[in-house]
Write a protein that binds this DNA or RNA. Structure first.
Lengths: 216, 216
DNA sequence: ATTCTGTCAAACCATTTGGTCTGACATCCG
DNA sequence: CGGATGTCAGACCAAATGGTTTGACAGAAT
């Protein structure tokens, strides 16, 4: 197999050791997420992670204890970013404003952080053995959103739907642009590195959902 | 790691060797698909495949040449089933009939063959290096469907949409019930082995799409 | 200067991996 | 019967894996 392209590691002036160390850990995690996204926990190799990070395997193990620990840390890092993404989203401006904002944020994250979404999806695909703890918290947010959607239906603002399945469907459509990005590019006639049209994607999903709910 | 449960291998009377041989290959492929779905090509082990098939590693290698060959054969097998699934679907009965049928078939396949869908999705996630040849044919069908959807819009039967993205979104929603089945069960409060409600899922996706397109 | 701490490469190690070799046994064909 | 062919388990092997040990070097503190 060809050596993977090393991520660029911006040069850090010596003297600021704590910061340098933290940045290197971030850099390693970013490299690891790409490797885990492509090969899963079992298929990922520490050598592959080191190569992607542009460091030796020894240096990698100077910063981490084990592959499993790095995997778990990357997963919680991702779920943390994910939760942060929806801080401060407006819950009280009605279905159209909320759904438009929600969909736009999800699509943007999928396009800017495809490796993160893929690694997460891979973990879910193999039964999510390490995620049930994380999900316990996320389930709360999901149920809260379900009640909100149910209330909209009560008020006649939208057609009555299964709120949980609606969320599944929005997740599926928005995350698809990370998961099956290669398929989307191929079918669209784009090259492997051409950018997907974020505004167009957001507009199409939003229109499908708003019309699908018969938002008033 | 605990030994994976071996798939049941129905006893085959001796004497019918050709049939027995073919059935054993099918049995091995089924076991391999489960292993590949869970661990990807690199993470899958031939020992794991042999264990799942309930045979020795030697016996496995008596029937296959290499892990890669088995992987490729499983992929083409899956795409073959997938193509067969849509033989004879009615193209001329208008959007509602077509979309309802299409969604129902996709959901059913995801629920009855989750490992197949997951293995395929895994391959797509890692850039689908082995699928571009397969996709060349499938792209034709996709473009044909796009023209059909465009014609519906021309006739005023549906709202105007990007036909390609509409297909992506239907794929994403329907395949999600294989890909993120564990997440769906968790969020729904179901146990890991409880069945998902196929009719309900089909109804919700179909309603979202038909309303989303403002089908007349 | 010396000692201590953080950083890192080369060599190394035990285990697991994909895959083969040898040889046994069974069945079919003459 | 006897050989040819198909089927399969156990021992085996080279390579790759995750991870450790050794020791070197740099800079800061004493």
């Amino acid at each position: 197999m060809a050596a993977p392209e090393a991520l660029s590691l911006r040069h850090v002036g010596r003297g600021d050791l704590a910061r340098k160390r933290g940045e290197l850990r971030d850099h390693i995690r970013a490299a690891a997420i790409v490797e885990f996204a492509e090969h899963g926990l079992r298929g990922a190799s520490t050598q592959g992670i080191a190569d992607r990070a542009g460091i030796s395997k020894t240096k990698l193990h100077y910063y981490i204890d084990s592959k499993e620990e790095l995997y778990a840390e990357a997963l919680t890092h991702i779920t943390g970013i994910w939760a942060d993404l929806f801080e401060g989203i407006a819950l009280d401006k009605g279905p159209e404003a909320f759904l438009s904002d929600y969909i736009a944020r999800k699509v943007r994250f999928s396009l800017t952080h495809p490796a993160e979404v893929r690694m997460f999806t891979g973990e879910v695909m193999r039964g999510a053995p390490m995620l049930h703890a994380v999900w316990a918290g996320s389930r709360e947010a999901t149920l809260r959103a379900s009640r909100l959607i149910g209330a909209w239906a009560d008020q006649g603002l939208i057609r009555r739907v299964d709120p949980l399945l609606l969320q599944f469907h929005i997740w599926a459509m928005t995350e698809a642009y990370a998961v099956m990005a290669s398929e989307a590019r191929f079918m669209s006639g784009l090259g492997p590195d051409d950018p997907l049209d974020e505004a167009h994607i957001v507009a199409e999903i939003t229109a499908l959902v708003l019309n699908g709910l018969r938002v008033q």
